[in-house]
Design a protein around this nucleic acid. Structure first.
Length: 731
DNA sequence: AATTGCTAAGTTTTT
DNA sequence: CTTAGCAATT
């Protein structure tokens, strides 16, 4: 049985409120994940079928962690007989499912949960039963939608082998449209268009409020073309995953009905980060049964610029008037000094649900504030402090983290760390998936799964060079647009082929043949019989395509070339392990490639294990530090224009900047050090800087200026120094 | 096709 | 000061 005594009263209430809408306001470090996992276990203990529970998170990391912790917790629960025929029934457990449902075996005097799906849903239920009924669904919004779409997307006129565009592929598509749509639009930034497009499509409240009107007009104009371009290639982007699922629900009520039955108990983590479309998704799943539990913290909403609607959390009562609100305010992470300072800071925000964090961890030491002349001195001194803590107080590197607003701030820090011989680990930065060789390979796989994916096909058509020149490709593209077909279809069209010279025609034919031959081989069941088939295939395929040679040839530096080869080998080596959960013995490789792509598109944190190991200082942006904690935290660059970023004033997002600082502060467990500089090199020039106005919002009595600090036990030496500095100050 | 040189711009980034 | 993207050149 689940031991709820390890929870504090608020946590316990959150775990025991199982029916109806619940909003759990979970402050930083208040045991949010624990509450969610216990609540899942509790639902099951009270008779909910595990397969009817859905917990949605934003990151794969969070999903994995939750999955693990739920599994651990469930092990402590008595086993029970499952639905369907999987279990042959030599369970000697005291309870079986039906008796739980009717409450007869319940040892606890709570109302048992009624079983969700009505009888009419039996066929649907059985289909789900076969594969997944035993486990709760714990995943991200996007992977949930992929699951649903892989099953039903044909109802919307897509084929089930759709591929998911990465951001760079989206950009590619937009650039193509831009270049085609008009020669006049020279100075439209594709990136800006993409951002706005996403805002438009997700239907945010003030979608394009601060955008340049001409860019906004362009985005609106591009939208239709973009959508039909993707549609024509049987490709979807990240936003589509949510939007198409919604459309599926709207246009096919039977799908909605079975999803509602399937996901009977819904929990959403990081609710303050949901966008308008995600809200609609949650709402359409739960508006009938209303067993929705959302967990979040309005004070930690820092992704508004990405379309997150903090209003979803603030206005919960609007859509769920009967919602029960539970606040978690006891913090298990930080000292009260840190919490009090953070509370004082965040109080300056107006539109929020109030919250006061406290802890039993004592006061701890004061927050240290440093002022430096420039960023080099800042970096040097922070590194000194890190080493000092390590030497004097045995604080390992891994217990210390440096937080900053912008990525470029990491540079001087890295230099100083390397200079001092300190191991460090930079989170974020250049993504593995932005590397050329990885993009090429994925484009190959995508084009093989779905040759009508023009962007992927165009990317790899002449890599390595196979005689398909730019001119040829341009003409093919034009032909495909004329005929309203994909580029691949155009390539195969004899009428189109006839327009090319013999040489180009030959190359084209060879390419088409190559793709089709490979696809044929992949679709053949016998290919899947050998061990680790995907890895073997990929190695051989890239060999045959001449890609390995091309990669080596393309790089002058031999070292760099081998690096790329190694990157790609590493990726390929993981192919057979990926998505191993649902693999059937004779499954064609095409389908397994598709699963591999899904996993990859949706989960970009693959190097984490490598990075996390070993003793090293963490360098991280304030955005990506959410959810993490460190015993000792240094927040650098607290200057006006950097922390309230200059742009936030124009865009009116000062609150969000304050929240960002709040998030940064509340990462710290024991000590918090804040620094700012009087000057900073910006674009080569040293510019004067002023301290962040946020620093004035911290209670002065909790902050100690490093310059005034006197080392603790007053030694003769430091006493002398103190007098010396006093004399200096007076004289 | 590949290399060089010029110009322009320069937050944050879960999927 | 960087760096990415593009154009012009070999």
């Amino acid at each position: 049985m689940l031991n709820l005594n390890v929870l504090n009263p608020q946590q316990r209430q959150a775990v025991e409120t199982l029916r109806g809408p619940v909003l759990i306001l979970a402050g930083a470090g208040t045991g949010k994940t624990r509450v969610i996992t216990y609540r899942v276990a509790r639902l099951i203990e009270k008779g909910a079928a595990p397969g009817h529970i859905l917990a949605v998170t934003f990151t794969n990391k969070a999903a994995r962690e939750m999955q693990e912790r739920v599994t651990d917790l469930l092990r402590t629960l008595p086993k029970r007989r499952e639905h369907g025929s999987r279990n042959t029934g030599h369970d000697n457990d005291s309870t079986d499912h039906t008796s739980r449902l009717t409450g007869h075996s319940s040892t606890i005097n709570h109302q048992p949960l009624t079983i969700a799906p009505p009888l009419s849903d039996a066929p649907t239920l059985q289909r789900f039963n076969a594969s997944t009924i035993q486990r709760p669904t714990i995943c991200t919004f996007h992977s949930l939608c992929v699951r649903i779409l892989r099953q039903y997307i044909d109802r919307l006129g897509y084929k089930k082998n759709f591929v998911i565009f990465s951001e760079s592929e989206q950009l590619g598509a937009i650039k193509k449209i831009l270049s085609h749509i008009s020669a006049q639009g020279e100075k439209t930034d594709p990136q800006a268009i993409l951002g706005l497009l996403s805002r438009f499509r997700n239907g945010g409240s003030q979608a394009a409020a601060f955008a340049d009107p001409s860019v906004a007009a362009m985005a609106a104009h591009v939208r239709a073309r973009y959508e039909s371009a993707l549609r024509a290639c049987n490709v979807v982007d990240f936003d589509d995953l949510i939007l198409l699922t919604l459309r599926l629900f709207e246009e096919h009520p039977d799908v909605l009905t079975s999803c509602r039955a399937r996901y009977r108990y819904v929990m959403v983590d990081e609710y303050q980060d949901t966008n308008a479309a995600q809200f609609r998704l949650v709402h359409s799943l739960t508006q009938e049964h209303r067993d929705l539990c959302v967990v979040g913290d309005d004070d930690q909403s820092i992704y508004g610029w990405r379309g997150a609607e903090i209003a979803n959390l603030l206005d919960m009562e609007k859509h769920y008037p009967e919602v029960k609100v539970i606040k978690l305010e006891q913090n298990y992470r930080s000292t009260n000094t840190i919490l009090t300072a953070a509370n004082a800071l965040i109080k300056h925000n107006v539109r929020r649900r109030g919250k006061q964090l406290w802890s039993k961890n004592g006061h701890g030491t004061k927050i240290t504030l440093h002022t430096f002349a420039n960023e080099e001195e800042e970096a040097r001194t922070v590194v000194e402090e890190i080493e000092c803590a390590r030497m004097a107080r045995r604080v390992p590197w891994s217990h210390q983290a440096i937080l900053f607003r912008t990525n470029q701030q990491s540079r001087p820090l890295e230099t100083a760390l390397r200079h001092a011989g300190v191991r460090y680990h930079l989170v974020g930065g250049q993504s593995f998936f932005d590397r050329r060789e990885v993009k090429d390979f994925l484009a190959y796989v995508k084009a093989l799964v779905n040759p009508h994916d023009d962007v992927s096909l165009l990317r790899i058509a002449n890599v390595p060079p196979r005689g398909l020149s730019d001119v040829t490709m341009e003409r093919l593209l034009a032909a495909s647009q004329e005929r309203h077909c994909s580029v691949f279809a155009a390539m195969k069209n004899p009428a189109v082929q006839a327009t090319f010279l013999a040489k180009a025609r030959e190359c084209l034919g060879a390419f088409v043949e190559f793709i089709e031959r490979t696809r044929g081989w992949l679709a053949d069941e016998s290919s899947a019989r050998q061990p680790s088939p995907l890895q073997r295939w990929a190695e051989k395929f890239l060999d045959e395509a001449g890609y390995w040679d091309d990669l080596r040839r393309g790089e002058k530096d031999k070292e760099a070339a081998e690096n790329r080869v190694r990157n790609l080998r590493d990726l390929i080596a993981t192919m057979d392990a990926q998505g191993s959960a649902g693999i059937l013995p004779g499954q064609p490789l095409t389908e397994r490639l598709q699963m591999f792509l899904d996993d990859l598109s949706l989960d970009s944190e693959r190097e984490d294990e490598k990075e996390a190991q070993g003793d090293a200082v963490t360098l991280i942006t304030m955005h990506s530090c959410k959810g993490l904690e460190f015993p000792h935290v240094y927040v650098v660059g607290l200057e006006d224009g950097l922390l309230p970023h200059a742009r936030s004033k124009v865009e009116g997002t000062l609150d969000e900047e304050r929240r960002l600082f709040y998030v940064a502060m509340t990462r710290a467990m024991q000590t918090l050090t804040l620094t700012h500089c009087a000057g900073r090199k910006r674009y080569g020039q040293l510019l004067p800087c002023h301290p962040s106005p946020f620093l004035n919002e911290l209670p002065p009595e909790l902050v100690e200026h490093a310059e005034d600090r006197v080392s603790e036990p007053v030694t003769v030496e430091s006493g002398k120094n103190m007098f010396a500095s006093m004399r200096a100050a007076v004289g």
